[in-house]
Amino acid sequence: MRVLVTGAAGMLGSRLVKRLLEQGVGGRAVTAMDLFDAFPCAPPDAPSVEIRTFQGDIADAAISERLAASKPDFVFHLASIVSGEAETNFDLG
Rank of each mutant, 00 (worst) to 15 (best):
M1A: 15
T6I: 07
A9K: 00
M11G: 11
M11Y: 15
L12C: 08
G13Y: 01
R15V: 12
V17P: 03
V17W: 04
V17N: 08
K18R: 13
R19N: 15
R19G: 13
R19Q: 15
L20V: 11
L20A: 04
L21D: 01
Q23V: 14
G24A: 06
G24D: 08
G24I: 08
G24F: 04
V25I: 12
G26W: 09
G26A: 08
R28A: 09
R28G: 06
V30C: 01
M33Q: 01
L35R: 01
F36G: 00
D37A: 07
D37I: 09
A38F: 04
F39V: 03
P40L: 02
A42V: 14
P43D: 05
P43V: 01
P44W: 00
D45N: 14
D45S: 05
A46F: 03
A46C: 06
V49E: 07
F54T: 05
G56F: 11
G56L: 13
D57L: 13
I58D: 09
I58F: 13
A61L: 12
A61M: 09
S64V: 12
R66V: 08
L67S: 07
L67A: 03
S70E: 05
P72H: 03
P72Q: 04
F74E: 08
V75I: 02
F76T: 13
H77K: 01
H77R: 03
H77P: 02
A79N: 10
A79E: 13
I81V: 12
I81H: 06
V82Q: 09
S83E: 08
G84H: 01
G84D: 10
E85N: 08
E85P: 02
A86D: 15
N89H: 13
F90T: 12
L92F: 09
